[in-house]
């Protein structure tokens, strides 16, 4: 089963290597990992999607906690959460196909962010399913290049997986 972990880390050099190294040497599989800084520039947030049963997840979480730079880990899989991925797709587009592609872009509420001589570059955000679907829809035209961010996620409602200014954990 896939689990989504929200991991808050100190924004120290090497922290990504520590987390990635931990996963590889303990034989855990990362499905996706996205990282960026939070509202506090000293703290980064990683969204890690990891595959495994409850026992593996327990070890992943505990081993992550042992890293000094890891401040907080929340397994948000079982809660209600919003998740998004961003994708940029450069697709072949000539005069004949351009209209059809633009229709697909509209259906997925995506955007065209660049037009080339024979290509269109499309930006789409959404959950994993939507991103997969737009990729499938555009594939027949010939995808020249594709870049995905990996998933970021956040709990719905009042609940948060963050730390306040004292470094103390919120609810």
């Amino acid at each position: 089963m896939l689990h989504t972990l929200a991991v808050l880390v100190e924004n120290n050099p090497g922290v990504l290597a520590r987390v990635a190294g931990l996963f590889s040497r303990r034989g855990f599989n990362i499905d996706s990992l996205a990282v960026g800084r939070t509202d506090n520039s000293a703290i980064s947030r990683m969204t890690i999607v990891v595959e495994g049963d409850d026992l593996i997840l327990e070890q992943v979480t505990k081993q992550l906690h042992k890293l000094i730079d890891v401040i907080k880990i929340s397994d948000i899989t079982k809660d209600e959460y919003v998740d998004r991925e961003l994708v940029l797709i450069k697709v072949n587009a000539d005069a004949a196909t351009r209209g059809e592609i633009m229709q697909i872009v509209d259906i997925f509420r995506a955007h065209i962010v660049d037009i080339g001589h024979k290509t269109l570059t499309i930006e789409a955000t959404g959950d994993e399913g939507k991103i997969n679907a737009i990729e499938q829809a555009l594939r027949p035209f010939g995808i020249r290049e594709l870049a995905r961010t990996g998933k970021i996620a956040m709990l719905r409602g009042f609940k948060a997986s963050s730390v306040n200014n004292n470094g103390k954990e919120d609810v």
């Binding site: 090497g14 290597a17 890293l67 000094i68």
Partner: peptide, 16 residues
């Protein structure tokens, strides 16, 4: 050496 010893130290530092 911080890279090499990452899996065998409790923590390590490269002082910049």
């Amino acid at each position: 050496i911080t890279g090499i010893t990452m899996p065998v130290t409790k923590h390590n530092y490269l002082v910049k």
